[in-house]
Amino acid sequence: MKNKSTTKEKDTKASVNMKGISNIIDNTSKIVIKAANILEEEIAKGIIAAKQMEEKMTDVKKLHSEDKEALLMRFRKDAHDIIDLLVDFTSIAVKNVSSISSQWISIKTESSAPEVTQSGKNSNIPLITVPKELKQDEYYEMPVKLENESKTEMKSIQFENSAFSGNGEEHLPANTISFDPNPLVLQPGTSGSVILKITIPPDAREGSYSCLLQAKNLNDLKAMLILKIVNG
């Protein structure tokens, strides 16, 4: 593969808590498991979209300047009551920006680590953001640290991932990433790293992409990986 640049960021390790890792799903119906995975993937996508929307909405703060407020007041006076309600919705939207922000809770504090955020109180899907923008045909390695909190049970984690979805119709195949080692074996009470090996396809389009990472054999070990591709 041409123009490969390898970046091994040994210091940048994302911790993913493995609490609940022992919930093996042998007895659950396959259709229910499939549904659970799809829901988590869709919700995580929605959270990403909400974050992007939040960034856009931040610009609406400009509306809060005194002149704009006066303009709105004048507009309210002259306009139909439906318009008045819509203006109210706009001002409520601005006020709600802060409450949307509060749903993003960092669970990783190491300064050099890739960004890992909790996606919401009940969805429990950590978000792992690749810390640099990648170019077409670029190769990148990112270690992710996992801890086995069980004091008695050894864990063998077999990783798999979905294809990447972009903002629009863009997709990246699932084999854009691979895991090393796979499976990752963790003794009781120990931690270890799996390296995410990312190879951006040469024909990939610019944009943000996300995919679901999960352990094939463990119900609760899931994360969304987010990466950004820029034109090289």
């Binding site: 549904a35 659970a36 829901l39 919700i43 919401g120 109180k121 009940n122 969805s123």
Partner: peptide, 11 residues
């Protein structure tokens, strides 16, 4: 938190 109903509602 309305997210608590997502899984129930989906099933």
């Amino acid at each position: 938190d309305p997210d608590r109903f997502n899984r129930f509602g989906y099933y």
